[in-house]
Structures are given as structure tokens and as C-alpha cells.
Amino acid sequence: MHRIAKLAAVVVTAAAFSAPAMAQGATSYIYNSYSQDFNSWTGVRACDGDTDGNSVMAHFTRDNTSAYTVHEQRGNGYCSDSGMDYGNRVAKHRSQQIRDWATDPYGPWKYRV
């Protein structure tokens, strides 16, 4: 019985190291909503994860140092993205919840390294 358990552990370990990891973008959360870079920092998306009536905005800069925004206004479960620019990649981004009657909180800046 111990040989089977050891063999299973070896197979699981080998599979874990042989499978390539999926690259995940850096994510700036504000509550359950967020901004996230994608496709090797060529674009940014703003995603609304809260059923609260507030929209979500992603603030970001590209290599040319210009500031941009993406605004998701459709509600919970939707994302909007900036589109990709391979020659002018995203340098940093952060999320913001847009509220009607209160201060608009921001998530932390995420930087390309």
C-alpha cells in the first residue's frame, strides 16, 4: 500500500512541475471590483464585481507616460478593457470605485516590473 501512495505522490509532483503556469496579470482590488493588466501588460481591464450600483474605473499610464482610463458602467459581472498596444505597454494601473454620494476609493497602484 505504501508503494502506491509513494508512486501517486511522485506522479502528482511531476505533473505540477511539468505543467506551464498561466501568466496572471497584476490585480488592483477595490472591494470585489478590480483593474487588471493583461497580455503581458499591453492592456488594462476594469471589472465590476459588486452589486452596489457603483461603477468601476481603471486608471493607468503607458510607457509614453500619458494617463488613460477605462470605465465599466454596465454593472456586476462585466469588464471593459483598453485594447492592446504592443508598442506602448502599460506601466502601472489601479482601480477606483465611482460613487454618487461619497468619496471615490482607490485600490493600490500595480507596477510592471
Rank of each mutant, 00 (worst) to 15 (best):
D85W: 04
T51N: 13
N64Y: 01
N64E: 04
S66G: 10
S80Y: 05
D85I: 13
A67P: 00
T69L: 01
G77N: 03
R62V: 09
Y68R: 05
Y78E: 08
G53C: 01
H71T: 04
V56H: 00
N76G: 08
S82T: 08
N76W: 12
Y68F: 15
N64S: 13
D63I: 02
N54P: 00
C79I: 04
M57C: 09
S55R: 04
V70Q: 05
N76K: 14
D63P: 00
D81Q: 09
T51D: 12
G83R: 02
H59L: 13
S66R: 08
S55W: 06
G53Y: 00
T61E: 09
T61G: 09
A58F: 02
D63Q: 06
V70S: 11
N64G: 12
H71G: 02
V56K: 00
N64P: 00
A58V: 05
S80F: 05
D85G: 11
T61F: 03
S66Y: 09
S55F: 02
D52F: 02
S80M: 10
H71W: 08
V56R: 00
S66A: 15
G83M: 11
D52T: 04
H71N: 05
D63G: 15
F60M: 08
D81Y: 04
R74I: 11
T61W: 02
D81H: 14
N76M: 14
M57A: 11
S82C: 13
T69C: 03
F60P: 01
S80I: 07
F60E: 03
T65E: 05
D63E: 10
H59C: 02
N54Y: 07
M84K: 12
G75C: 10
N76C: 15
M84C: 09
S55N: 09
D63S: 09
V56M: 05
C79S: 14
D81M: 04
G75K: 05
D52I: 03
M84R: 07
S80V: 11
T51P: 00
S55I: 03
D85Q: 13
G75A: 15
A67F: 11
N76T: 12
D52W: 01
N54E: 06
G75E: 04
N54L: 06
G77H: 04
V70K: 05
N54T: 03
F60G: 03
N54K: 06
M57R: 12
C79E: 12
E72Y: 06
H59Q: 09
N76E: 15
D85H: 06
S66T: 14
S80Q: 10
T51Q: 08
F60Q: 07
H71K: 04
T51I: 11
E72I: 07
A67K: 07
V56E: 00
V56F: 00
G77A: 14
G83V: 13
V56N: 01
A58P: 00
C79P: 02
E72A: 14
T61Q: 08
G77R: 06
N76R: 11
R74Q: 13
D63F: 06
S82A: 15
T65D: 08
H59S: 07
M84A: 15
D81I: 01
C79W: 07
H71M: 08
D52K: 01
A58W: 00
N76I: 06
T65M: 14
R74C: 10
Q73Y: 08
T61A: 15
